[in-house]
Computed example of a mutant assay.
Amino acid sequence: MRYIIVTGTSRGLGEAIATQLLEKGTKLISISRKPNEQLIEKAKYLTIPFDFYSFDLQEIHQIESFMEKIFSNIDVTNVSSIHLINNAGMLAPMKPLERSESEQLIANVHVNLVAPMLLSSAFMKHTKGWNIDKRIINISSGAGQKPYFGWGAYCTTKAGINMLTKCIALEETDKEYPVKVISFAPGVVDTNMQAEIRQTPKEDFIQVERFLTLKENDHLLSPDYVAKAVIELLETNHFDQGGIIRIDEQ
């Protein structure tokens, strides 16, 4: 059976990824602060094996024991492949660094960078020696390669995710059973995060008009479309190990 761990499944892209992964032969392990009742009900209706864990990724000191709990419930004799999708993320604070609250900056770094680092570390520790297909997909952003006014924390953490991806790939090079890893920028997706961006005052985010125009002109990508692209990365044989790719480069 294919096991897939996905973070941030309560809404948006994570919800779309999780929904499409509810299929025979897949055991979906969903992680988010709040339960997604529609996802839970759909899994029941389809009789698809599904585990939901309520967990706040800001609780970084609990992540290692949390992953211990997850892996203690995995039947190692029944695993044909195992994948981790680090999707959960937050944009706030959306304002210049000098006006950003320290607690929001800390939360951003914890959720966007420290949590994926710890989840990936635990994933690799627990699957070491498993002679199966093992992959980590880190959901990044174009903001990880380009600075945006008012997005200091978000840009910095996504740049960190990209470098983390490269480092993991380098460290896995000579392993007997390596983990494959890639960083994926999904483009501008029509999610609650985009709605949050469009409501930001121009003095906090000077490029807000661009995102308003993208919405008005119907140029946002649907979560379902992007989710399909993410799932293709779990299944393709043409995997760019350590790569930093955009959705339009697939």
Rank of each mutant, 00 (worst) to 15 (best):
N73V: 01
Q207M: 12
R198Y: 11
Q38K: 15
D51K: 10
S65N: 10
A18L: 06
P147T: 02
L22H: 08
I4H: 02
G89P: 05
A88E: 06
Q207P: 00
K125L: 11
F239T: 09
C155P: 05
T236V: 15
L84D: 05
Y45D: 10
N162F: 05
K128G: 04
L118Y: 09
L220D: 03
S10H: 07
G25S: 11
A16K: 04
V76E: 12
P93C: 09
I197P: 11
S141F: 06
W151T: 11
L221Q: 10
S102C: 06
E59S: 14
A43Y: 10
I29Y: 02
K69G: 02
A229Y: 03
Q145L: 12
Q145E: 13
P201W: 12
K202I: 10
S141L: 02
N87C: 08
S65K: 14
F66K: 04
H219D: 14
D224Y: 14
K146M: 11
Y53M: 03
K166H: 01
C167F: 03
I244V: 14
D224H: 14
I63A: 13
L105H: 04
A107P: 01
P223H: 11
S32L: 09
D133A: 12
H238V: 12
G243V: 05
A88I: 12
G152R: 02
I197C: 07
A18Y: 07
F55D: 11
A43F: 07
L97R: 01
K44G: 01
K128A: 07
A195Y: 09
R2E: 15
E37N: 14
S102Y: 13
A18V: 12
F184I: 04
K44A: 13
P96I: 11
G144I: 07
C155W: 10
I40T: 14
D240Q: 11
N87H: 12
F149G: 00
N112L: 04
E41A: 09
P223L: 07
E249R: 14
I136H: 01
K24P: 02
L234N: 13
H238P: 07
D75P: 03
C167W: 00
L221F: 14
H83T: 02
A195Q: 14
Q250H: 15
L233M: 12
E249I: 03
L57Q: 07
E37F: 10
D240G: 00
I161V: 15
I182D: 05
L84F: 07
N36F: 07
K69Q: 15
Y45A: 11
L164Y: 05
E216V: 08
Q20Y: 01
W151E: 09
S120H: 01
N73K: 15
I247P: 08
G25K: 10
A143T: 12
G144H: 04
V111M: 02
Y3T: 10
M193I: 08
G8A: 07
L57V: 10
L91I: 14
K166I: 01
D51G: 00
P96C: 10
V230S: 11
F52I: 02
P186L: 03
S10R: 00
A159I: 10
Q199V: 00
I4R: 03
P178S: 07
Y177G: 02
S121F: 08
A107Q: 09
A143K: 08
Q58P: 00
T236D: 15
S100A: 15
V79G: 06
Q58R: 14
E64S: 15
C155K: 09
A88C: 08
E37S: 08
H219R: 15
T156I: 03
I161N: 00
I29T: 01
Y3R: 03
E68I: 06
N162A: 01
N162L: 00
M163A: 04
